[in-house]
Protein backbone atom coordinates (compact mmCIF):
# COMPACT_ATOMS: atom_id res chain seq x y z
CA UNK A 1 0.00 0.00 0.00
CA UNK A 2 0.99 3.60 -0.51
CA UNK A 3 -0.31 6.34 1.78
CA UNK A 4 -1.29 9.66 0.24
CA UNK A 5 -1.91 12.79 2.27
CA UNK A 6 -3.30 16.05 0.91
CA UNK A 7 -1.85 18.73 3.15
CA UNK A 8 -4.15 21.40 1.69
CA UNK A 9 -7.23 19.44 2.74
CA UNK A 10 -5.90 18.44 6.20
CA UNK A 11 -7.53 20.28 9.12
CA UNK A 12 -5.06 19.13 11.77
CA UNK A 13 -7.48 17.09 13.88
CA UNK A 14 -4.70 14.66 14.81
CA UNK A 15 -6.84 11.51 14.60
CA UNK A 16 -4.26 9.86 12.32
CA UNK A 17 -1.43 10.38 14.82
CA UNK A 18 -3.50 8.79 17.56
CA UNK A 19 -4.43 5.85 15.33
CA UNK A 20 -1.03 5.21 13.70
CA UNK A 21 1.83 6.97 15.41
CA UNK A 22 4.51 5.18 13.39
CA UNK A 23 2.95 6.27 10.12
CA UNK A 24 1.73 9.83 10.72
CA UNK A 25 2.95 12.94 12.48
CA UNK A 26 1.91 16.60 12.49
CA UNK A 27 4.04 19.65 11.70
CA UNK A 28 4.02 22.73 13.96
CA UNK A 29 0.72 23.87 12.43
CA UNK A 30 -0.79 20.41 13.05
CA UNK A 31 -0.85 19.54 9.34
CA UNK A 32 -0.26 15.88 8.53
CA UNK A 33 3.22 14.56 7.75
CA UNK A 34 3.57 11.00 6.44
CA UNK A 35 6.44 9.26 8.20
CA UNK A 36 6.10 5.91 6.45
CA UNK A 37 4.61 5.89 2.95
CA UNK A 38 4.42 2.12 2.64
CA UNK A 39 3.70 0.74 6.11
CA UNK A 40 3.85 -3.00 6.71
CA UNK A 41 1.98 -5.49 8.90
CA UNK A 42 0.60 -3.93 12.09
CA UNK A 43 1.45 -0.43 10.92
CA UNK A 44 -0.47 -1.07 7.70
CA UNK A 45 -3.52 -2.02 9.73
CA UNK A 46 -3.18 1.06 11.94
CA UNK A 47 -2.77 3.22 8.83
CA UNK A 48 -6.04 1.90 7.39
CA UNK A 49 -7.71 2.73 10.69
CA UNK A 50 -6.19 6.21 10.58
CA UNK A 51 -7.47 6.83 7.06
CA UNK A 52 -10.96 5.79 8.19
CA UNK A 53 -10.81 8.12 11.16
CA UNK A 54 -9.70 11.19 9.18
CA UNK A 55 -12.46 13.80 9.36
CA UNK A 56 -11.27 15.92 6.43
CA UNK A 57 -10.75 13.28 3.75
CA UNK A 58 -7.11 14.30 3.41
CA UNK A 59 -5.84 10.72 3.59
CA UNK A 60 -6.13 7.95 1.05
CA UNK A 61 -4.54 4.59 0.35
CA UNK A 62 -3.32 3.44 -3.01
CA UNK A 63 -3.07 -0.33 -3.10
CA UNK A 64 0.11 -1.38 -4.85
Amino acid sequence: MKIKADRDVCIGAGNCVLAAENVFDQDDDAIVVVLEESPQDEDAESARNAVGSCPSGALSIEET
Binding site: I11, G12, G14, V17, L18, Q26, D28, D29, A30, I31
Partner: peptide, 15 residues
Protein backbone atom coordinates in the same frame (compact mmCIF):
# COMPACT_ATOMS: atom_id res chain seq x y z
CA UNK B 1 -12.88 29.10 8.16
CA UNK B 2 -9.65 27.51 6.93
CA UNK B 3 -7.70 30.73 7.44
CA UNK B 4 -8.80 31.11 11.07
CA UNK B 5 -8.62 27.42 11.98
CA UNK B 6 -5.05 27.16 10.73
CA UNK B 7 -3.99 29.91 13.15
CA UNK B 8 -5.13 27.69 16.02
CA UNK B 9 -4.43 24.08 15.06
CA UNK B 10 -0.77 24.30 16.08
CA UNK B 11 -1.90 24.78 19.69
CA UNK B 12 -3.76 21.46 19.64
CA UNK B 13 -1.33 19.03 18.03
CA UNK B 14 -1.10 15.62 19.66
CA UNK B 15 2.49 16.47 20.69
Amino acid sequence: HTRLRRLLTGEFTVK
